[in-house]
Design a binder for these strands. Structure first.
Lengths: 198, 198
DNA sequence: CCCTTTTCACCTAGGTGGTAAGAT
DNA sequence: ATCTTACCACCTAGGTGAAAAGGG
């Protein structure tokens, strides 16, 4: 009923333990979450959102080329961890017509950001997280979240550790290789021009 | 109950007969439509949209430095002329919290564009148009447009003639002077640097 | 010492009017 | 002739990781 797009890319990152940068003003995820939905009622109304929850109750640190657990987590800190898809609410037909993507979702460590625009999800650095997709049927007169009509989906391949700077060079290289905005750091970018000389 | 933002700017253009470029892939308006709303029910739901209607039944042409009427219009051609504000539907509180802007609305002469994304309004070149704002209270079970609960507002200062190339040099200069994306054509842009030499 | 923040060059993405070529 | 289209240099706007600076 829900398929994760970019699955092969997510799997490549997951194999090395995905890291996602968080910054004060907010950083997009890469890869970003994108789903294909099916089996909805085309004429019913749904709101679709993503939240991000702790996978375990530990700090993590990168030591000797490996991620290791390290002490207890600080518990659930305040801050928004829910991101409503901008098309919400909309019909089942709309959501099934094309992929449902969260390319503009931003991650931050700025706890004050939750007061403003709810475009940012507030996380703690060096904690491991699991993004989840929520599909909520919206019926008249009963708005609000959570709702009894919500289905939740989670893909382990999308788990990540929040960081303020990349720890694993393999992850850095995967980001550079696949994120169009990091093209300036690709090794073979200069050699494209070198090859055309002479 | 509805106020036109950027009124002084609109008035400057209107004095010279505003022109708006239309292209196949769509062109933003400049100035763009932006309104301040008040007097709505904060907890009621509204959809807000803009449409563009013919002001008269004539072709226009620019001749001897003046716009003159010239023959009859071709009547209402097919094509979408309605643009739903992307925040729709939303509460009265939302719409009154800040200005309601249509900065991404695009104008086109491509009649086939109406089938695709409804982000573009289809117009005919060399015809005079009036944009209108529609505020529709959305009640459960009665969706669709028009609705008996719609209020419509039109500001004569926002009238314009659709063109594929600017005719009046005064209008061109106003666009260059005020549209940030046309900064490269500003005369005093080079002299800024010249002045700092020596 | 480890983690976070700031700043930077370098990129993607796309909105301008000018200009010349194309279409009717 | 007149209007339209395609392409261009030049801009705005903002997303990258690197590197240096800042903080506890």
């Amino acid at each position: 009923q829900v398929m994760l797009n970019n699955y092969p890319l997510w799997a490549k990152f997951h194999k090395h333990q995905t890291e996602m940068i968080i910054t004060k003003q907010g950083r997009r995820m890469f890869p970003f979450l994108s789903f294909n939905l099916s089996g909805l009622n085309p004429v019913a109304h749904y709101s679709i959102c993503v939240d991000v929850v702790l996978v375990d109750q530990h700090h993590w640190r990168y030591q000797g080329g490996k991620w290791v657990q390290c002490g207890k987590a600080e518990g659930n800190m305040p801050g928004n961890r829910l991101y409503l898809h901008p098309d919400s609410p909309n019909t089942g037909a709309h959501w099934m017509r094309q992929e449902v993507s969260f390319g503009k979702l931003k991650l931050t460590n700025n706890k004050g950001a939750s007061n403003n625009v709810s475009q940012m999800i507030v996380l703690q650095s060096l904690h491991k997280y699991q993004p989840r997709l929520h599909v909520t049927e919206v019926k008249e007169g009963e708005e609000g979240y959570p709702s009894p009509h919500t289905h939740t989906f989670a893909f382990p391949e999308t788990q990540f550790i929040a960081v303020t700077a990349y720890q694993n060079a393999d992850i850095t290289q995967l980001k550079i290789d696949h994120n169009p905005f990091a093209k300036g750091f690709r090794d073979n970018f200069d050699s494209m021009y070198a090859a055309s000389e002479g």
